[in-house]
Design a protein around this nucleic acid. Structure first.
Lengths: 140, 140
DNA sequence: CTAAATGCTCTAGCGACTAGAGGATCAAGA
DNA sequence: TCTTGATCCTCTAGTCGCTAGAGCATTTAG
């Protein structure tokens, strides 16, 4: 029935030190212990930890997860807050994708212009150096 | 000619503590000081710091920037390494965009399925909980 | 002359872990 | 029974790239 932290780790694919860390920050309740002070877990912890793991994989922050867990323990309450947490997270991801996409374009352009010659002719170095002071002439 | 750390900060849009931090980790050389121990900078530091700032904006890590800076100081050498740093960074950004895009799709689907009712019927909570153990039935 | 701004050093904090030391305990094979 | 290796425990410190704050000295503007 009850099993060790190593077994919990195997069942959830969450590393042992991470489980202990989650306990320390109160994301998991303090586990009961054996006589020799080892933590004991059951199915409830497997479920909770899977929930946490999947939320982390989706990029939710620990504090969001705290709220999501609290919500999931109040099944009769409105899921408005859940929806709102998920939506702001989605918006944040959109922002990140947009910013990475801009960045990628600039990088790609930079790289495509690199003549693979000497550093003094390299557009990559030049772009990095020049940005924001484009009054100076390029290439001598 | 020579100016203060505050002025350097204004000219590069890099915050004062960040400049001191860059000096501490050796990304900027230790600045000469006035009699009263204040740091003094010139145009060379403006250039170097702008290079650093722009590289950071493009998401390069500090260690990459160290190499890029070292390269830019060897203008006669081949820019092969520069190209290779930039390319692996581009690949990394591609990976991040791909992963965020997958994640966004999953989140969006989850949210669209949320009935805005009670938590016990909420697909968001359900998906977070169920992932990886889909043998269990959905919704009772 | 004074008050605000700027500078200095040093330490500690952020988020979400990860690594390592140093020691206890457990399970399995000889 | 002994031993070996795996697992467990706690504690501290490190990662990255800053950021914040304490407590003090100096500069600058009015």
């Amino acid at each position: 029935m009850a099993f060790s932290i190593g077994e919990l780790s195997r069942r959830t694919a969450v590393k042992v030190p991470t489980i202990r860390y989650y306990e320390q920050i109160g994301l998991l309740p303090a586990a009961p212990r054996t006589d020799s002070n080892r933590r004991l877990y059951g199915q409830a912890e497997v479920d909770r930890l899977n929930f946490i793991r999947h939320s982390r994989e989706l990029g939710f922050e620990i504090d969001d997860i705290r709220e999501l867990l609290a919500m999931s323990e109040q099944p009769q309450s409105s899921c408005h807050k859940v929806d709102s947490i998920a939506n702001s997270h989605l918006a944040e991801i959109d922002r990140r994708i947009a910013s990475l996409t801009t960045l990628k374009a600039e990088l790609a352009r930079m790289i495509s212009e690199c003549g693979r010659g000497r550093v003094c002719d390299c557009r990559i170095i030049e772009v990095l150096a020049d940005h924001g002071q484009c009054r100076t002439e390029h290439r001598r």
